[in-house]
């Protein structure tokens, strides 16, 4: 950055990028005043570039090396050697590629049913992989983490801590039991569960506010440091 200038020079490759980013940042923030065409243009630009980038990256790093190149090599292998082995390898590569392309049949209503074959496999894999994993991570390990501290009580406060967690778990689970009316002793427990949930929501909201302000800090730092040169 030239020290004599207030803003970063526009006439460098880095400078052009910083100017474009700064103007687009201000265009997005113009929404804080009121909705306007400049804001909508910038928003559309962001969405378009993000989707374009995703498509190009996916094609370049996945479709090309994982689908097109292996299929191409498979065809060459068959045409050169012509053996049963080459053909078997080619079919092995071709099956997932064909299943992948079947997903695109959803765009043609007449053949949309074909995509169900690929979807069924995809859902089957997803459910098969995730159900035991989630059971392990979200249920078994969490129950373990709730009970285990009671086996390692080394001070009064560790006992208090373990009890707070245990009571919170049980009362919150009770809150989500909807087959019984929440009144009487049961209602009191569910009310306690509500307090635990409120604390969780409060903490989450606090973190959310912090995150949003962090993003504002990031953009203002960029504008004031990289663009305007106000921060050393």
């Amino acid at each position: 950055m030239d020290s004599g200038l207030i803003c970063v020079s526009l006439f460098t490759s880095e400078g052009v990028g910083i100017w474009i980013a700064s103007i687009l940042t201000l265009a997005i923030y113009s929404f804080l005043y009121r909705d306007n065409p400049i804001y909508r243009f910038s928003e559309s630009l962001l969405i378009g570039i993000s989707v374009g980038f995703l498509l190009v990256t996916t094609f370049d790093t996945t479709l090309l090396p994982k689908a097109f190149e292996p299929v191409g090599k498979g065809i060459i292998g068959i045409s050169e050697s012509g053996g049963i082995n080459s053909f078997a390898i080619f079919v092995w590569i071709l099956i997932p590629v064909v299943l992948g392309f079947l997903m695109f049949t959803r765009f043609v209503p007449r053949y949309a049913w074909m995509s169900r074959v690929a979807l069924a496999l995809y859902i089957g894999f997803g459910a098969g992989a995730s159900i035991p994993a989630n059971m392990q991570s979200y249920i078994l390990r969490q129950i373990d983490a709730t009970i285990r501290p009671f086996l390692n009580i080394d001070s009064f406060w560790s006992l208090v801590n373990a009890l707070i967690v245990l009571v919170g778990l049980i009362s919150t689970l009770f809150y989500f039991f909807f087959s019984k009316e929440q009144k009487g002793a049961f209602g009191k427990i569910t009310r306690l569960g509500t307090f635990y949930l409120m604390i969780f929501f409060g903490a989450t909201f606090g973190y959310t506010v912090m995150a949003r302000i962090s993003l504002l800090i990031g953009r203002l730092t960029f504008l004031m440091k990289d663009w305007l040169g106000l921060i050393s």
């Binding site: 973190y207 995150a211 962090s214």
Partner: peptide
């Protein structure tokens, strides 16, 4: 993580995951 996601992951630290 972003701060928004922090509360989701406290239990995973307590459980040693």
């Amino acid at each position: 993580l972003t701060a928004v996601m922090a509360t989701t992951f406290f239990p995973f630290i307590d459980s040693g995951q």
